[in-house]
Design a protein around this nucleic acid. Structure first.
Lengths: 329, 329
DNA sequence: GTGAAAGCGCTAACAC
DNA sequence: GTGTTAGCGCTTTCAC
């Protein structure tokens, strides 16, 4: 087998407990001895066995990151950032995909529970109540969701939505449509509310249509509804839905942005590459990943002492080619 | 703390070893006792502590998955599939991103080693020799790389490249250019070789230009080189590079596919969404993720007894809008 | 400042 | 078929 703390101890001529202290509580050990121990460890290529220390300390130094769909371009930047940030702090992260299935989410939390010090739930599909219950056993941080007693990272998509509505109003659009996301999506709810109040403020008509699958197919399926209502400005749940609706409108001989303007959300690669390039609400995805890990680590070291924090991250609007002035009848 | 095997034992009125057996070697225990144990476990919501069992068995039931860049659209489908497949087999997976840095890769393997039963290395940047050495300590599977003694999943990009060359030849192109990937990329080497022999067969001129960064920037930077050589058919290292070169050519007033045809590789979302939609060599990414986990699990259960397997997965060519007949002078 | 010893939760011989 | 025991690698009292 590999090299253990005992090997280091005998090479350094000290007891295992001294080695342990030298590694994890250096101030408790004589500087000279510590040096000897460290040298021995280096020489042997010693790496502490986390499983063993987890057993005694109850700290695994692992985190879980649970997302709905790894292949949805919204998530990879978040995963990447979270994972990098965690690693700098000597944490490894399990990444798991629930395929948008609440039950898989719960099951996953269960099997992960013993192996991690905490879990980041990104846009969970589980009911609030469930999350509250589960959070009694294990530190959680939710992203884009608000749950009593649970730390949260919120992307302020409401603000971005207001910007989008103003932008559309400024272009002369009078009739807007919001394509809502999956049932239970916090962020979709934020968008709806913000859109309603902003529309009222600008004196615009607004229809909310949903739920829609958060995919291109979901968007394509909504195209007919857009045409039927005669809306000329559309705010889609995310970039994928926006791309889908543009494609679907194309099949109905409705051109974007000439006939209808479409705004996406997330600012994914997909949106940048689409033609027309998407006007989109920019979500701070990497920052959300880092912040979530940060809050989680705090909760963990605080011993999860009941205090939950909230971080709100700003969003913006990037105007590209999928929005334009309303066509004059 | 949580419920342990001891709690289950006392509720079921048996000894801990019986519980352990009932869970992991059911055939060694009386059916009736087993039922009693299971009932007790269910009642208490018992979940075995993997860290503890890892300590005795040396099996963590965890895998590592190391990729160069989570945010590169090539990887997410692979990660998603690998992770889902592993979970069905009761394995969790650590996902880690090296940011294309060989040193990070090695460091990561080191810190992960004790916590996993094996590691999938996707398109590693490490030298073969290093991987060979590391594979002495830990089961590895490499994807798109061949290393002596290490199981591998290979996507047969050579075949896809031949198809692409034939396709371009059929459209009348006589002068081709291959935009190679990063130094040390196995898959780039396969493409180059296949392109050379296929070009020779068709009597075409071929230039290989590289290394290029596997990104849009890398592609954009290559546009001038394409124009300089007068190539009318380009095969790019991946979809991102293809998209970049198309963009770059646009700035030079070279139109795709009217003036130059461009073929990508990977069949990512990005390529599907790009305008013109990319003609691309289709990589079997989800299958590669599953197969890699499959081989890894085999290696692990075989005790890593020296046998290494190779799986070769077929690739194809999807023709879309970025390729067309050569322009007649 | 360092050593000795107990124990984290579980599995794996070995008895019976 | 089930109980007993030792021990995986590490941390953490408690002595000295």
């Amino acid at each position: 087998m590999a090299v253990t703390i005992r090997d280091v101890a005998s090479l350094a001529g000290v007891h295992v407990s001294t080695v342990s202290r030298a590694m994890s509580a250096p101030h408790l050990v004589n500087a000279a001895t510590r040096e000897r121990v460290m040298a021995a460890a280096r020489q042997l290529g010693y790496r502490p066995n986390r499983a063993a220390s987890a057993l005694t300390t109850g700290r695994t130094h692992n985190l879980g990151l649970i997302v709905a769909d790894i292949a949805n371009p919204f998530f990879p930047p978040l995963i990447k950032a979270a994972q990098a940030y965690a690693r700098e702090r000597e944490y490894h992260v399990f990444v798991a995909d629930t395929d948008e299935d609440p039950q898989a989410e719960e099951e996953l939390i269960g099997t992960l529970a013993k192996q991690v010090d905490g879990v980041v739930l990104v846009a969970p599909r589980l009911a609030n109540q469930q999350i509250e219950r589960l959070s009694l056993d294990l530190p959680f941080v939710v992203v884009n969701r608000q749950v009593k007693g649970v730390s949260a990272v919120l992307m302020d998509v409401g603000h971005g939505t207001e910007l989008a509505v103003s932008h559309l109003a400024g272009l002369g659009h009078r009739r807007l449509m919001v394509l809502a996301g999956p049932r239970g999506s916090w962020s979709s709810k934020q968008m709806e509310q913000a859109a309603r109040s902003a529309a009222a403020e600008h004196g615009l008509e607004l229809t909310v249509s949903g739920p829609n699958a958060p995919t291109e197919q979901g968007g394509a399926a909504a195209a007919a509804r857009v045409r039927r209502t005669g809306a000329t400005g559309v705010i889609a749940y995310n970039d994928l839905v926006a791309i889908g609706v543009i494609e679907g409108l194309g099949h109905l001989d409705v051109q974007v942005p000439e006939d209808v303007s479409v705004v996406g959300v997330d600012d994914t690669v997909a949106g940048r590459l689409n033609r027309p390039k998407l006007t989109t609400i920019v979500m701070p995805t990497p920052a959300a990943g880092r912040t979530a890990v940060d809050l989680l680590l705090q909760t963990i070291t605080d011993g999860g002492g009941g205090v939950s924090a909230q971080a709100s991250l700003a969003t913006g609007l990037t105007v590209r080619e999928s929005t334009g002035p309303v066509r004059r009848g």
